[in-house]
Design a protein around this nucleic acid. Sequence first.
DNA 1: TTGTAAGCGTTATCAT
DNA 2: ATGATAACGCTTACAA
Lengths: 336, 336
Amino acid sequence: MVNRPTIIDVAKIAGVSKTTVSRVINDDVRKVSDETVKRVRQAIEELGYQHNSIASSLRTDRTNIIMLMIPDITNPFWPEVARGIQDRMDEAGYSVVFANLDWNHAREQDFLKIAMQTRVDGILINPIHVSEKQIITTQIPSVVLGIRPGFNTLDMVGSDSPAAMREALAYLVRLGHERIALLLGSSETGSSHSRKNNFLNFFAERDLPVQSEFVVNVRFDNHGGEEGMTQLLQMPEKPTAVIASNDLIALGALQVANSMGYQVPKDISIMGIDDIYAASLSIPALSTVRKDKYQIGKIAANYLIQRMTAAVEQGKQQISKVPCQLVVRGSTTRPA
Amino acid sequence: MVNRPTIIDVAKIAGVSKTTVSRVINDDVRKVSDETVKRVRQAIEELGYQHNSIASSLRTDRTNIIMLMIPDITNPFWPEVARGIQDRMDEAGYSVVFANLDWNHAREQDFLKIAMQTRVDGILINPIHVSEKQIITTQIPSVVLGIRPGFNTLDMVGSDSPAAMREALAYLVRLGHERIALLLGSSETGSSHSRKNNFLNFFAERDLPVQSEFVVNVRFDNHGGEEGMTQLLQMPEKPTAVIASNDLIALGALQVANSMGYQVPKDISIMGIDDIYAASLSIPALSTVRKDKYQIGKIAANYLIQRMTAAVEQGKQQISKVPCQLVVRGSTTRPA
DNA sequence: TTGTAAGCGTTATCAT
DNA sequence: ATGATAACGCTTACAA
């Protein structure tokens, strides 16, 4: 291995003790004479000394690293959330590392373990398989990305998904649709259950016929959308509108509809949720419900910083639901 | 802070020395009796002991972490490369953390420093502003993602971009295009220069007229494509075909062309490079040149593992150019 | 097969 | 204002 200089080497050259060097490095300069500071800085420069944060962490029990755990880094939704997180964390002096969970139960648990073993200072996670208890067990300050019904301890930040779904449905109903299908992205999260109920209740509450055969469980990506849409379009009585759990699913559906010769929106309307960049690219461009991804990231980062610095009362769960916004584009219209 | 159990606690409960515990943890079980192993494992379980990799790293000078540094995590190109990297690194027992450089000079240097300070075992980087020398100075085994003309020491893995560009151009010329513009994604990499020359040489070599006013420098994202395309469409003599440095730029261009009332490809052909998922979603779907992103990641990971384990001769640069493949979709046709 | 003890590079405590 | 010294939790010769 490389033989890097340590503070001891620096101390030797500067003619001081390593304690003094440490003080300079940590900007704990109050009690060091300007003269000495200069000499130490010079020595550091001269040697090309690099602070060893491993050793520092061992001593201080802090790493200044927070881990961002998301299920699918290929979904353009997350990078925007990440940006909000990073901007805030940068300010606060933390580095953000990503963990790509791949919708994979084992990976999710593995990374929780890795987070413990590497002693990260905080966790931001969009949990799919792990329970709130498992997260809490890490003893690491954590904030949940997304609203998880069963969770009642950890802070959570997400968009107001039920409201988003209701708004989208109300819009489609206003257009005159009665046969509305749901491509329900599912992944064994409790939330997929509640989102299904949320969908069905909408109709029940308005005395509209509930067609639960129009709820199709699909994977949470474009392929899921493709498969689900294929299924819907083979039904003897097809829906006149389709709403998907996210834009990727909707875009997959849109592509299948196109390639099977259906005209969107004339033959069938399609809506997404999220408003990722690609939603504005398809033709017709995708009608959707915009989530303020950057804002979600920023709030989550703030919550976590509060928790890490114990700036907020323990045991009091904070929940933030960022409002969504209907975005009407070309993929929806009144039924034929 | 939390009071986590250490190997000393485990040792006490198991009635052995911490050395023995360490041996069990590191599967250095050859010299420990089955009986003892069982007792230690039990104690670990009982205490919920978690290995402290900080302390371990300090002692061994290895972190088993490799840092992946990319300019823009919102470009769907990188997640697919990352997947190739992760799959290989997982096998080899390394964790991959991402650093998002944001096309930002300072950030790029900062993260190089963070990589040194956190003592990561390896670096995979798509360098934009930093020099090869700066990377080498870290003393950390590193592999470059992308082919950088000036670099002659570090291993590099990328697609054969010049070939990709030539193939795309040849295709457009075969279609009969003579007025071909280039939306050149630029970011002060030397490579943007050489890619420009590569473009111009293509015409020179074939005795075709070279119109260097058709080379427009743009930012490396969709907005760059939008701005560049706007510029091109305001020219008195417009190009009949446009090729972009990557799909994001091309998609931005496509969108602008659409919204300005041009029919693609009838009025103007547009080509991208990369073949990201969104390229197949636009209508017309984007003709492009596919790069095997997963493969790039996998090869890069292999190179890095070789370097980290010193399995390959020092000082011998390895370069791998993954071949590209023309993908013809709907955004290109012969000129009007 | 197991244990003792030194040391990795810091920071924190207590003197001076 | 500066320094000596003891941790932090682990791995690794070396001894037994």
